[in-house]
Nucleic acid binder design. Structure first.
Lengths: 139, 139
DNA sequence: TTGGATGCAAATACTTTGCACACGG
DNA sequence: CCGTGTGCAAAGTATTTGCATCCAA
């Protein structure tokens, strides 16, 4: 499907942001590609066509778009790697605001059927991650 | 349950690593606590008792332990934020080695029952993440 | 003794912040 | 014009790398 700049302009305006040329370019880039780029990957793809575009602008706008829900941020970003000594099967709730991680031991997840896309990969383990805002942060 | 140093030594040796005093201390620390510490958090807890222990050693060993499967690294993708232009409901496979993300659109996940630990939290969305090693990396 | 492990310091990577200028409404 | 958005540079934090020394086997 073709993505028109007009649609993008609308989409950006609808979520309360000014449809600047940079925002349109960034959103177009993200909707056109099938992978899951980092801010820098988007930057690399756009800098030839938009030499004045700054990486900073991409960081800010990807974050804004995700906040408005027109794109998704796959990894709630902890500033640092977090480790768990408990390797028994359990899942996690992550507060998107304070980044707190809460164990969910009592949560039963029905058996997962590994999809065919992964038939050749080695699956280690799966973890369900629930994102939200914890009690402390919701005040 | 009490964790004996003897058991830890065994555990470390069993996964092919030398049971140095630093490794034993780091693993003991991680297995004793109920939270999900960063490398620095582990460092802060240990540096009084082991003044010569370096943060670097903790980084390396937490990574090694996670690779051997005796602890878990919760956020595989913490080094850079990754975004997805596709906001339809789907899940992801993440290669723990090359960090590649593969979309799993065909995967049906039965309805999730939100556990009681979260009764006061606001749940935004949940994503199932399957961790493993992709075909390219498994050679 | 010997190769892996550690400690230190420097280097790198990612992201955020501060501020002056530019631009859309 | 007004206020948000952008670009640049600098700062901040997390992690990795290089290398000499150390230590468990």
């Amino acid at each position: 499907m073709k993505i028109s700049k007009k649609d993008l302009t609308e989409k950006i305006r609808n979520c309360g942001l000014k449809p600047t040329s940079q925002r349109i370019a960034i959103l177009l880039q993200l909707l056109s590609r099938r992978d899951h780029p980092s801010a820098d990957a988007v930057y690399q793809s756009l800098k030839d066509e938009y030499p004045s575009l700054s990486l900073n602008t991409i960081y800010m706008n990807l974050e804004s778009f995700a906040e408005k829900g027109i794109i998704t941020k796959i990894n709630v970003l902890h500033q640092s790697a977090r480790f768990d000594g408990d390797i028994s099967s359990h899942h996690h709730f992550v507060c998107v605001r304070c980044k707190k991680i809460i164990d969910l031991h009592n949560m039963k997840i029905p058996k997962i059927k590994i999809p065919k896309e992964l038939k050749t990969a080695k699956v280690y383990f799966h973890q369900l991650r629930i994102n939200g805002i914890c009690e402390d942060c919701s005040n």
